[in-house]
Simulated scan of single mutants.
Amino acid sequence: MAAQPARTSLSGHDAALDGLRALAAGLVVVTHAAFLTGSVTSLGLLGRILGRGDIGVAIFFALSGYLLYLGFLRWPGQPVGSYYLRRAARVLPAYLLTLAVVVAATRPAPRDALLHALGLQIYAPGSHLPAFSQSWSIATELSFYAVLPAAAFGVHALRSRNPQAPLRLLVVALPLAVLISGLTPGADLEVDVPVERWLPARSASFLVGMILAEVVMDPGHPISARVRRWLREPTALLAMAATTYLLATTPIAGLLTLGTVSGGQLAVKMALSCVICAILLGIVVLGPATAYTRALSSPVATWLGRISYGIFLWHLPVFTGLYAVTGVSYFAGGLIPLLAIGLPITLALAAASHAWVEEPIMRWAAGSRRRGARLDAR
């Protein structure tokens, strides 16, 4: 059967992107549930598959790289202040609300609470809140937000001299970023600075999204033409992504439990996650319509995608809260009961966060941006 035309989305928004967010959040949720219940080590291959769900974080990073960089490609002169306001409004209120609940419930050291509130927990030794440990990726994401305008400005200047250079530069930077991840030292989360969570060690995932944004905006580039040819066979690519994911569950990609992954194993893990992210995101933004994209665009998937940030923030506090309330021991099984009780609570909190915190503040930020634009025009 002939491949259908590519569904390029210059607007940067496709319902399937929301579905991909839901998939990323779901991977993160199941990997934490599997870890807390000991299922990673007790369920054989299924446990390893669940345990490698931390690749969902890489998918979130790739989505950020794609959508935010695409915005700078479309509007290279957008005010940096407005960009930072939108990013702060999108991320910080819900994050700080969840953090406040975690701090009130667990009473961590004031130093650790303050570092998390400032998004600096990955730059200090031993700053680790077990009930909110997934928040490290927010700190990494914030650092990407901070440097992206300068990077986009540099790329724009390079493009004015050589229109084909930016995409080539990003493609060359990708393996270098993977190599950098392999050079980062390991860390004990309880006592060391987790350098492997800093932006340089995680930049490969963001670069995947940025490369795809360049391909979307410059379809005539030789690299873009090659990428589009690859994406004409989404079924084979999805099979490759599944095989790559299975490979990532083996020891070559490091531990599946809480221990640190660094050095060569982190580089391998980054490389494998880049392949997965490139396929899953590339098919959505450039490939033909398939059962995969239709599933991601379904009403349930898009709704879950819209509240995915709240799912990401709330699931681990909910899971650890259930352990505290029930007195059940960690690593003693019970994956299905944990998900059956914890997921509905998480979804309710995420939906409430989206409706009462995230959406109102994002609308306020959008209104402030429009008001500022009108003042500038006077």
Rank of each mutant, 00 (worst) to 15 (best):
A2M: 12
Y145E: 10
A124I: 11
C277H: 06
H13K: 13
Y83E: 06
P163H: 10
G182M: 07
S39K: 06
I223L: 13
T320A: 02
A289S: 15
F331P: 00
A152G: 09
S224R: 04
P194T: 06
L118S: 12
L212V: 08
L43V: 06
K269Q: 14
G333Y: 04
A373R: 10
A2H: 10
G182P: 12
S64L: 10
F331I: 00
A289L: 11
M240L: 15
A117E: 11
R107P: 06
I341P: 00
G282M: 13
F319I: 03
A139N: 04
P344R: 07
V91N: 05
A253R: 05
G282K: 07
I283N: 11
L10E: 10
H116K: 13
A351I: 01
S11R: 14
G367S: 11
A6W: 05
I49W: 08
S9K: 12
E233C: 13
Y145G: 08
A24Y: 02
I138R: 07
V101Y: 02
G310S: 04
L46V: 15
G209M: 04
L286V: 11
A365L: 04
A351H: 04
G254F: 10
L158H: 09
G53D: 11
L148F: 09
R306D: 00
I211W: 01
G26M: 06
A291L: 15
N162G: 08
G310E: 02
